[in-house]
Write a protein that binds this DNA or RNA. Structure first.
Length: 430
RNA sequence: UCCCCGAUAGCUCAAUUGGUAGAGCGAGCGGCUGUUAACCGCUAGGUUCGUGGUUCGAGUCCACGUCGGGGAGCCA
């Protein structure tokens, strides 16, 4: 049996087609049924007037439960009254599988309930739209780097050592030894950049942070480019270009989804280069001027980030953070040894830090000293130090958090809606 | 790890001062030819998270526990 997808109905107006999908919802009156069908590509309304079909089909429509699998045949017409803009005058309705009583109704549900039914919640139109946007963002990221001569280099998931802290690592047995799930592919990307010049990795990262907020997952996806001979300004330009390219792509390809999500697209249309660039010292001044008690040397809390990003209609780059609050591999600022050549990108509307990165230290003695100061085991980093022994060059890169970016694009409050099956503190089901 | 809030029908919630458990949605049945979270009528549906305590009497008060939500710190 041939099949037409709802997304393609516009090419079939006036023709008879067959849709294969599920019953999204049904409304009935005495002599007419409205069946809203979804097939993964969209929603379409099927109309069943009593006089158009056999008694058997009409009676069958009365009893089909929500989310039952159905195949319908009918003639396509444009109609503003129908969700999706198209409706089918149905001639036949076949039930492939009659669903049991479906737990997710059109009324409101609590987040806890929906999360425990995540495997079914994925079918709801907003969740469906979010994952379509996620798919578009992933493609935009890959296209951005591939089009600019970057090579995709996959970083390992098992690692022998921590990249930054050691307290937030997931530990696992590795034969007779121990291993950790990766927090970041960056160190490996530095090695790859010395081989290929421009590289990126894109995969999951794991952090055993006991964070109970809407901005944290224990498993999230991150894209991490790394560029040989790049200095801080190059890193900032690259991050700015990537973020613009993502917003542009979402606006270009996801209009339907943004409508479903009731996203204010003007906020995304404002995402154009150049982004404001704010020196950490000036950010401190700004916070104090706005009444936040904040001292030079500290890291921004969530309210500080929100206050800073509220000043602008587009993402803001904050650069040259104090070295003490950044990772051991950050290159110090030649103009102020207490500062580092680092940069964060803060998204607007309170979505917080979506990018963190900077220029890496390329001096062997400096790194050896830092590893010691941070109490890290030097032998675990010997391979990394080799990169400073054999043709060390200035280089830098950043990590962009996929779910935070998707949440911002979608205007969704919780990161957990931006990944198909979120992993959070104490929660690993379904 | 710390702080705040919560747990009552399948779901979302209500229950006055401590005095016999209620509604909407969903489900079932009936009605309605253009519905948009449709509407109208009827029916079924309860170990009030668990364990102890106070009381003549606990959904309600107290203690502990479990689970859920929000936030802080930390981060992407």
């Amino acid at each position: 049996m041939s099949q037409t997808y709802i997304a393609d109905l516009k090419d079939h107006v006036g023709k008879e087609v067959t849709l294969k999908g599920w019953l999204y919802k049904r409304r009935s009156s005495g002599k007419i049924h409205f069946l809203v069908v979804r097939d993964g590509t969209g929603l379409a309304q099927g109309v069943v007037p009593k006089n158009d079909v056999s008694e058997e089909v009409f009676e069958r429509c009365k009893t089909i439960a929500q989310e039952s699998a159905i195949v319908v045949r009918g003639t396509v017409a444009e109609d503003d009254r129908a969700p999706g803009g198209f409706e089918l005058r149905l001639s036949d309705v076949e039930v492939v599988h009659a669903a049991a009583e479906y737990p997710i109704t059109p009324k409101e549900h609590s987040t806890g309930f929906l999360m425990s039914h995540r495997h079914l919640w994925l079918r709801s139109s907003k969740q469906h739209a979010v994952l379509r946007v996620r798919g578009a963002v992933i493609r935009a990221i890959r296209d951005f780097f591939d089009d600019r001569g970057f090579l995709l280099v996959d970083a390992p998931v098992f690692t022998p050592n921590a990249c930054e802290g050691t307290t937030t690592l997931f530990e696992t047995k590795y034969f007779d030894d121990r291993a950790y799930l990766t927090q970041s592919g960056q160190l490996y990307m530095e090695a790859a950049a010395m081989a290929h010049g421009k590289v990126y990795c894109f995969g999951p990262a794991f952090r055993a942070e006991k964070s109970k907020t809407r901005r944290h997952l224990t498993e999230f996806w991150m894209v991490e480019p790394e560029v040989a001979y790049a200095e801080l300004d190059d890193v900032m330009d690259l991050a700015e270009g990537l973020v613009c390219s993502i917003a542009e792509r979402v606006l270009d390809r996801c209009q339907e989804e943004l409508k479903t999500l009731e996203r204010d697209v003007s906020r995304l249309e404002a995402v154009k280069a150049p982004f404001p660039r704010l020196h950490y010292d000036d950010a401190v001044k700004l916070l104090n001027d706005k009444g936040n008690d904040f001292e030079w040397g500290g890291d921004f809390g969530a309210p500080d980030e929100t206050l800073i990003s509220e000043q602008y209609d587009r993402p803001v780059l904050v650069h040259r953070f104090p070295a003490a609050i950044k990772a051991f591999y950050m290159k110090p600022d030649p103009e102020n040894e207490k500062a580092s050549l680092s940069v964060d990108v803060l998204a607007p509307e309170g979505y917080g830090e979506i990018v963190g990165g900077g220029q890496r230290a390329d001096d062997l003695e400096f790194l050896e000293r830092k590893i010691e100061e941070h109490g890290l085991p030097q032998d675990a980093f010997e391979w990394y130090l080799d990169l400073r022994r054999y043709g060390s060059v200035p280089h830098g890169g950043f990590g962009l958090g996929l779910e935070r970016t998707v949440a911002w694009m979608c205007g969704v409050e919780h990161l957990r809606e931006c990944i198909p099956f979120p992993r959070m503190l104490y929660k690993i089901y379904p």
